[in-house]
Nucleic acid binder design. Structure first.
Length: 313
DNA sequence: AAGCGTGGCAACCGCAGGCAT
DNA sequence: GATGCCTGCGGTTGCCACGCT
């Protein structure tokens, strides 16, 4: 059997929250912390359902929320991330400290959509509204530093080779539409020891890619998570191996979406611990799951932290 | 000043995946 | 293994403020 019934919906308030309700919720969470949303309303003396309390807290009352207008920089980040992730507002919000998914979603619908349309860009496809696919890539690529992209047609790669240290919140990569929906299940597994680097770095089949098809590396460093925004979206082109000996790369077939159950990463160099910015030590495998649908800092069942080392089981 | 239209945003709704029983 | 709740997510709704006529 399942659990006992959910919150009493018959005796709950709806609509706008009053100041008193807000204060009750704040006081309760300050005293007891977040979580247990089901029992929270009763315990806090609120005639609301737990879901409503959670939403109110996350979207409006949380102390770490950044209120106020979005900056130009944030606009561009949202546009770039949306071109890669689509309407994955929570993932986009995860890259913008202090912003909520709801806020970004509303902002997208009310401001950015119009902004893109005024640029002649379709906000859904991020292509010029009457242009070619090739022009679309050029138009969406707002960074003048990016180079023309070529990758093997059936391989999507993660190329972490120019990353010198691992951030607390790590890197992710995005493939085509068919893979995006699978991100929640995304895990990193070690590939066979014989990772074929050529698949990841340079292909024999040149192809013009849509933004979502591009191989994307989002590199973050400690400074970024300290509050600044320094998001870099770039293409995973071949880079010299690092002096650390760490050489992450991966590939998977985009042709068989069923076969894609995760992003695979492996070290082509011998395991060699590298200090993370949070003080932990990373061997040659890192779980990126918490970036891809799990709560921040929460590892999935496939990963563990033992003695300060992140491992794939 | 009143009526109307529009935009912004908080909140709700329904669904899916995960997990407890 | 089956059932059903919990949580989180994306889409949608509805209220309110503001500007225009």
């Amino acid at each position: 059997m399942g659990r006992s019934p959910c919150c009493e919906k018959a005796h709950t308030n709806k609509g706008a929250w009053t100041k008193e309700e807000d204060q009750r919720l704040i006081n309760y969470i300050r005293a007891h912390g977040e979580g247990c949303w089901r029992s929270l309303p009763k315990a806090a003396g609120l005639l609301r359902c737990g879901k409503s309390c959670r939403l109110r807290w996350i979207n409006y009352l949380r102390p770490d929320l950044k209120r106020g207008n979005f900056s130009e920089e944030e606009d561009e980040i949202i546009i770039k991330l949306h071109s890669l992730l689509g309407n994955k507002w929570s993932l986009i919000a995860g890259r913008l400290p202090g912003r909520t998914d709801n806020e970004i979603k509303n902002y997208w619908n009310t401001h950015i959509k119009r902004k893109l349309i005024s640029r002649g860009i379709d906000p859904q496809t991020h292509r010029p509204m009457n242009g070619t696919a090739a022009a679309a890539v050029a138009a969406t690529d707002t960074s003048s530093t990016q180079q023309p992209k070529t990758i093997p047609s059936n391989n999507i790669c993660l190329d972490f080779r120019n990353i010198t240290s691992f951030p607390q919140k790590p890197i992710f990569a995005v493939a085509g539409d068919d893979q995006i929906g699978k991100f929640k299940d995304t895990i990193i597994k070690t590939r066979e020891s014989s990772v074929d680097d050529t698949k990841c770095s340079s292909g024999t089949t040149e192809e013009t890619l849509t933004p979502r098809e591009q191989v994307v590396k989002v590199e973050q460093n400690e400074d970024v998570w300290g509050g600044g925004i320094d998001l870099e979206l770039s293409i995973g082109l071949p880079q010299p191996k690092l002096s650390t000996g760490i050489n992450f790369s991966s590939s998977f077939s985009s042709a068989d979406s069923k076969a894609f159950t995760g992003i695979w990463a492996a070290a082509t160099a011998p395991p060699q611990p590298v200090a993370m910015t949070n003080g932990a030590v990373v061997t040659n495998l890192v779980c990126l799951c918490w970036q891809l649908g799990h709560k921040s800092g929460q590892l999935c069942r496939n990963c563990e932290v033992a003695n300060g080392v992140y491992r794939y089981r």
